[in-house]
Design a protein around this nucleic acid. Structure first.
Lengths: 253, 253
DNA sequence: CGTGAGGTTGACTTCGGTCAACGTTTGTGG
DNA sequence: CCACAAACGTTGACCGAAGTCAACCTCACG
């Protein structure tokens, strides 16, 4: 957390994910101030509330300050297809940039604090700060990379690996953000987990029980506790590579 | 071909996919000329040749003028995971923009004509033509949307629907580009199709045989011929017919 | 407390993978 | 231009991972 930001101030959004767009490009204090003046709306959504939904005019981006959000759309039979879960620090709605309407539904999984940034303001900012455009492109690229990783996970692995991999990637994302990653809150229904992983709740339930029995990790009452990191990595099919994660690190600057 | 382009000249790349980035924003003749001066490299790759591979420095974008390209990477067991097939008019390598190295392998499926555009030249162009940046972002967004559609197709549908949907989407992409879409060349191995669809060659073979027997379409010796559009759409889940899909009926109840 | 959404468990089913054997194309060198 | 090998594709018998169905549990919340 410390030393990452060229400018530190008591501004509105110093803790929200928009800094991930703006700070890496080295904003001046003046630019930060301008950004803060623009990001005035800081809505709060409670569990189950809709942030935006597919088909409505795509007006804004949201930076998630706290809480968790799922992004999904309905298939032709009315089933949810969940594409992503967003964690604090993530930007929501990037894929609707320059689009007439949103393509997905975004729903709060628990109480969420957000920052709202109008698309037209972002566009304005982009003209004043060319480096910002590159950052937006990078975030988009990262979103594509995450989706591809998820796709690979879903299509070329067994159910058990998918579940292990899901827990592992959540832990990693919390770690990247400086939170405790061996014991963290995960306010996702098992049913949503199943949907996200292309499985049924029954299968997820059976697999979670197995991991618990084997002492790898537990997930009870919204809390995940990892007990055996190597076994979890192995179950998730993480290559026994020595140290770092090339892509993520590059993306974060 | 006709009437599509605001500027028509005997320039190098009037037929390559870079126009999809540039023309929609309304380039002037001067700008087109500048673009053409930059895009001088027009390499040809033969079947099986590597355009770029994961890990090597990401230097350029490629616009596919003719032929077909697959984008993939290896999983930890050395299996290919195919993410996309590129058709004439597509831009390849967008996801490596501003990245140190490519994240995927791109291989020619048959003889391919490409235009090569250095990343640093694109960056330069972007500074001179701000609208270009927006176009790049749009192409990226489109790539994300395609990946998500593919993900949905893979994870929430039966093998038969996946195959039908694959053929249908290929037909649509040819149609968009103004080619014959009811009878087209598809130089993709059945094995690669299986990999792309998360299936085995045996399963693909059985399903193709079934579609052929039912007179929906044939795919023999690199050529696809669609005989019954409504049935194909239905099989692909484009135009859902309740009476033909037992599971859906139950679900819709 | 009672109620209902969410979670668990077991018996059974099935889609699609695996294995093995056999056709059919394709491409290369004589 | 043919011969032959290697790559690609097809077919059938069998199997197993995960879905389905149904019953039951348990926990949060009014």
């Amino acid at each position: 957390m410390t030393g990452l930001h060229p400018v530190k101030s008591q501004i509105t959004c110093s803790s929200c994910g928009l800094q991930r767009i703006c700070f890496p490009s080295g904003m001046t204090a003046d630019e930060v101030q301008r950004l803060d003046n623009i990001i005035s709306a800081q809505p709060v959504f409670k569990k189950g509330e809709v942030i935006f939904s597919a088909g409505e005019p795509a007006a804004a981006l949201y930076a998630l300050k706290s809480g968790m959000v799922k992004l999904f759309r309905m298939d032709d039979q009315g089933n949810e297809i969940i594409h992503t879960f967003y964690l604090p620090g993530d930007i929501i709605g990037l894929d609707a940039l320059d689009q007439p309407v949103y393509g997905f539904d975004a729903v709060a999984l628990d109480t969420c604090n957000l920052c709202r940034l109008e698309q037209r303001d972002l566009e304005m900012l982009g003209m004043q700060m060319p480096a910002l455009n590159r950052q937006v492109l990078q975030m988009m690229r990262r979103e594509l990379e995450l989706e591809r990783a998820h796709y690979e996970n879903m299509t070329h692995r067994f159910a058990e690996q998918r579940v292990a991999s899901f827990i592992w990637s959540m832990a990693q994302r919390y770690r990247e953000r400086g939170y405790d990653w061996e014991c963290f809150r995960l306010p996702v229904l098992h049913r949503d987990t199943a949907t996200y992983l292309g499985l049924t709740p029954e299968t997820v339930s059976r697999i979670l029980k197995k991991f618990q029995k084997e002492g790898v990790f537990t997930w009870r009452r919204k809390y995940v506790e990892i007990h055996d990191v190597p076994r979890l990595q192995q179950a998730a099919g993480i290559a026994p590579k020595p140290d770092q994660c090339p892509r993520c690190c590059a993306a974060m600057g």
